[in-house]
Write a protein that binds this DNA or RNA. Structure first.
Length: 706
RNA sequence: GCACCCUUAGCUCAGUUGGUAGAGCAACUCAUUUACACUGAGAAGGUCGCAGGUUCGAGUCCUGCAGGGUGCACCA
């Protein structure tokens, strides 16, 4: 028995060494596994592409959970003999990364992005991204993730840029990408457009003001934003509202707070006759619903009264004023003119930007969009339909299955996707202009062309992730072998943003699915059930945890009892429990290895263990890793250690059985606790493989699906 | 407003197709140079949110209600 077993298990000394040995062996790379003969030449492929962490800082426990679950499936499949690829990468996370760096520069140097210029800012961001990337990679390795680093990708590197340009062109040529003037969510603080899903609604109390435009105007209107009324072109009422029927179609002139306005009365069934006065002032340029109503009634969109800095652009007393100041001025004016009727408090959801906290100002802007409702030539289906179909047909299975309902609900509400952003970090829109000419996807060789100033929404490139990482658009072996991928494992919170967009992009580009199964994990919360956040200071850093208890313990704590789709609570106590378990296993090994392997294997105990192995295998195959982990844990501690080993003490004839159970338990537990199992494996006197990592799985395949 | 999830032991949660309720932690009693105190043995603790229904049988399926949470939409 090696001397190391005389001391308690030391995960810190062991884990880094073991990971280095694995990396040196090359066995994370499936090609190398084939070369070394541990995987058959014609073995079936199994692939997962790592959801790329943002290069905005460090990993949190949610990432650790993701790594643990994916590594379990990967290690399991590798031991089962699949040609197993787990491909790593990181995400440039455009807005998130730029805003972190911009904030830092503002704080350190008091400069904004325009002071630095595009080139200098990008240099700074890239330096930050590189630093952040290196930290992330070392964290990922600490968790024991058996990723093939030789294939590492970045959403903003050359191969991925080629993929982005190719897909953009394909979509443009198909008429699905268009440039248009639309109301966008403008973030005056971040000075960029943001997408609907980057908005956070905050409930606030606001004042609802009721007034008339002028003394001879026949209808009172109510609004929470009186300052926008200088941009009104119409008043909409419900077609059946008897109070206003006689006015529909009439037009009025007024001078509202120094600004001449022209108002037409229109009837639209969108108007709720019970809210306010039942009459809405329409400001097409500064409200999404007003814009749509204006469309229906052929009204002008062109009256713009607020600019990108949320300041008024009209002449007179409001000129250059912030919207909030302008509001007070308008109310004062209404009162002095005798037009003001009343004000009341109402609850209102204010749209704010997730990243900057700025209040969203809806503005009409020339932006690039992806049309989700236009039938695709040759396929006669819209993108929306393409996104629904594979999930409805079962080609893509979502775990837990009830999230399919959420998915459909979300897709049904899908609107055209605004893909341009007014920031500098990211994929620049691959469109070049020269006078009236435009070149899409390919940069013209001649002089005189200028590229679009905007960059693409970060999800545009991450939507291609399953195939851009495999080398597409080149027809690589990897792409042929590993796509569609087998599993996508990610948090349920990005099901609509990312998962849906990967399905969209892949269905459109390749006419196939990006993955067969989606496994959604929940949020990792603190012991009180609160979200982990910097401001609360309740973050658990996976690196600290690994240093204190070992990555194996952290992985078990994250996996056991954690059903997919459900949030979990995590505490140091829980992780400590699995550190104890690691030590228990260590001592089991010490006990078994201290005796000579001799005699026969007891059939009854072997049968019992084999039944467990089969059970655990079925649980993994059916994505119940939370149960598989608990079953092995329970067997090893409370059956093997507490009963079988106790029973064997002072008796002969158990050692062969104990060796059998130990050897195969290490295999069963390896995907969950890779380090300690590998470390003990290295000390076994006889073994069927140098590395446990590529040893043969101890139970037959029980793939019950289909 | 629409949708989804949750409600099981003091706490955190399991419970795969319906077959007399489980784990971890905490608390309680006992053991103590043991492979392991990062330990072991034992006992205690639940009318499975409420009310109906289907069934020979319901924590599990159906309906309604209540409480908690989440997502989406609207919000003039």
């Amino acid at each position: 028995m090696p001397e190391k077993f005389l001391k308690p298990y030391d995960p810190i000394a062991t884990e880094a060494r073991i990971y280095a040995e694995w990396e040196k062996s090359g066995l994370f790379n499936p090609d190398e596994c084939v070369k070394q003969g541990v995987t058959g030449v014609d073995a079936p492929p199994y692939s997962i592409v790592l959801p790329p962490p943002n290069v905005t800082g460090r990993l949190h426990m949610g990432h650790a959970l993701m790594l643990a679950v994916e590594d379990i499936f990967i290690r399991y499949k590798r031991m089962r003999g699949f040609r197993t690829l787990w491909l790593p990468g990181t995400d440039h996370a455009a807005i998130a990364t730029q805003s972190v760096v911009e904030k830092q520069i503002k704080k350190d140097e008091g400069k904004n992005r325009h002071d630095l210029g595009r080139e200098e800012l990008l240099k700074r961001i890239e330096a930050y991204a590189t630093e952040s990337h290196d930290i992330i990679v070392s964290q990922v390795k600490t968790m024991g993730a058996s990723l093939d680093w030789s294939r590492e990708a970045f959403t903003l590197d050359e191969t991925r840029t080629n993929a982005v340009r190719k897909v953009f062109k394909k979509m443009y040529d198909a008429g699905l990408i268009y440039r248009g003037l639309r109301i966008v969510n403008w973030d005056p603080k971040g000075q960029t457009t943001i997408s609907d899903d980057e908005i956070v609604y905050e409930e606030r109390t606001a004042k609802l003001y009721t007034f008339r435009y002028s003394k001879d105007f026949p209808i009172s209107v109510a609004t929470t934003r009186p300052e926008t009324k200088v941009g009104d072109v119409a008043v909409a009422v419900h077609p059946d509202d008897p109070r206003y029927k006689e006015f529909v179609g009439k037009e009025y002139e007024a001078v509202f707070c120094d600004v001449p306005i022209h108002i037409k009365i229109v009837a639209d069934k969108e108007v709720d006759p019970t809210f306010g006065t039942g009459a809405v002032g329409l400001t097409p340029a500064h409200s999404n619903t007003d814009w749509e109503m204006a469309d229906r009634h052929f009204l002008s969109h062109e009256v713009i009264v607020i600019n990108e800095y949320a300041k008024m652009t009209v002449p007179g007393r409001l000129e250059g004023k912030k919207t909030t100041e302008a509001r007070d001025i308008v109310v004062e004016w209404l009162k002095s003119e005798g037009l003001f009727e009343k004000e009341e408090d109402i609850k209102q959801n204010v749209a704010t930007a997730e990243r900057t906290g700025g209040i969203i100002e809806p503005l009409p802007k020339l932006q690039w969009f992806v049309d989700v409702n236009k039938p695709i030539h040759g396929r006669e289906k819209t993108l929306k339909e393409l996104v629904i179909e594979p999930v409805r047909s079962g080609a893509i299975k979502i775990i837990p299955d009830y999230f399919e309902k959420t998915y459909f609900h979300w897709v049904e509400n899908l609107r055209d996707w605004c893909i341009s952003r007014q920031i500098w970090y990211g994929h620049r829109v691959p469109v070049w202009y020269k006078g009236e000419d435009i070149s899409v996807g390919i940069e013209p060789k001649e002089d005189g062309w200028t590229q679009d100033e905007d960059t693409l929404d970060t999800w545009f490139s991450s939507g291609l992730w399953t195939f851009s990482t495999l080398g597409w658009p080149d027809e690589t072996d990897d792409f042929k072998n590993y796509h569609p991928t087998d599993l996508l494992e990610t948090g349920y919170d990005i099901l609509p943003f990312w998962v849906m967009r990967m399905i969209l992009m892949t269905e459109f580009t390749l006419n196939t699915i990006p993955f067969k199964t989606v496994y959604l994990h929940g949020l990792v919360r603190d012991a009180q059930g609160r979200k982990m956040s910097k401001s609360l200071g309740n973050n658990l850093d996976p690196l600290d945890i690994a240093a204190k208890f070992g990555a194996d313990a952290a992985r078990m704590a994250l996996v056991v009892g954690n059903t997919p789709g459900t949030d979990m609570r995590m505490s140091e106590d829980k992780i400590k429990g699995y550190k104890h378990f690691a030590n228990k296993l260590w001592n089991i090994a010490r006990f078994v290895l201290s005796q000579e392997r001799a005699g026969e294997i007891k059939e009854e105990l072997k049968a019992e263990f084999d039944a467990l192995a089969k059970d655990v295998t079925t649980d993994i195959e059916e994505y119940r890793v939370y149960m598989a982990a608990e079953k092995i844990y329970h067997y090893l501690w409370h059956r093997l250690a507490d009963e079988i080993i106790e029973e064997s003490k002072g008796k002969d004839g158990y050692s062969a059985t104990l060796y059998y159970i130990l050897e195969n338990s290490l295999k069963l537990l390896h995907p969950f606790m890779p380090f300690i199992t590998e470390e003990i494996w290295q000390s076994l006197p006889a073994k069927d493989s140098k590395f446990l990592m590529v040893a043969k799985w101890p139970a037959p395949a029980t793939d019950l699906r289909q």
